[in-house]
Simulated assay, not measured.
Amino acid sequence: MTTGTGALTGFGAGDGRDLLNRAIEAHYEEMVAAASGGGRPRSAALDIVHDLYVKLAMRPEALADTRSLGAFLRRAAANLGVDRLRRERFEGRLFSGTDDEAAAVPVESAAPYHAFDAERRIALLKRAIAELPPRRRAVFVLHRMHGLTPGEIANRLKLSRNMVDRHLRRAFTHCLDRLAEFD
């Protein structure tokens, strides 16, 4: 097994993780620079490199046929950065409206029997919120109940803005999935 640029063969999961750790240490700043493409702030690039490390740590055998770890890691960081930029742009379009705009959309009046379901729906939403992991629940409650912006939540909970957005998306999706099961 080599740790530099030669082909990698015959290593176990522990060897792969050791190799990954050494490679990340050796090429960290190069990966951050590659992930910073498109004028992305350093904090976002650091998040990308972290996410890449987590993905590779779950599958260290992915490094087995790599000839140049540095080139592989730089390319992977750049690709992950491009993927994240595309997702952020998509989400920006998807979630571009404000709560006030959403409230201004007219709705048909509910049928009388829906009033009976209101208590069950509220109980279902309370359970759905309680099912969320603690950090995601805190982000959700701060945003929906206390009206904090994602930036304010990021500062208060010492999270990146991307992580706050991710928690909010997943919390909303979870609650909507639970409501869909009800309907």
Results as ranks from 00 to 15, higher is better:
residue 3 T to L: 12
residue 3 T to M: 05
residue 3 T to F: 11
residue 6 G to R: 14
residue 10 G to V: 04
residue 13 A to D: 11
residue 16 G to L: 08
residue 18 D to I: 04
residue 20 L to P: 04
residue 21 N to S: 13
residue 22 R to K: 09
residue 26 A to C: 03
residue 27 H to M: 07
residue 27 H to L: 03
residue 32 V to M: 03
residue 34 A to Q: 08
residue 35 A to Y: 04
residue 37 G to M: 12
residue 42 R to E: 15
residue 43 S to L: 10
residue 44 A to F: 07
residue 44 A to G: 11
residue 46 L to F: 08
residue 47 D to Y: 07
residue 48 I to Q: 06
residue 50 H to C: 11
residue 56 L to Y: 10
residue 58 M to F: 04
residue 64 A to K: 11
residue 67 R to Q: 11
residue 72 F to W: 03
residue 72 F to K: 04
residue 76 A to G: 08
residue 79 N to Y: 09
residue 82 V to I: 10
residue 86 R to M: 07
residue 88 E to S: 12
residue 88 E to P: 01
residue 93 R to D: 09
residue 95 F to M: 08
residue 102 A to S: 03
residue 105 V to E: 10
residue 108 E to H: 06
residue 109 S to D: 12
residue 113 Y to E: 13
residue 114 H to R: 13
residue 118 A to G: 06
residue 121 R to L: 14
residue 125 L to N: 02
residue 127 R to H: 02
residue 132 L to Y: 00
residue 135 R to S: 00
residue 136 R to W: 00
residue 137 R to Q: 10
residue 137 R to P: 00
residue 137 R to N: 01
residue 142 L to T: 01
residue 144 R to I: 01
residue 152 E to N: 09
residue 154 A to Q: 03
residue 157 L to W: 05
residue 159 L to T: 02
residue 159 L to I: 03
residue 161 R to K: 09
residue 167 H to R: 01
residue 172 F to T: 05
residue 175 C to P: 02
residue 181 E to H: 09
residue 181 E to K: 07
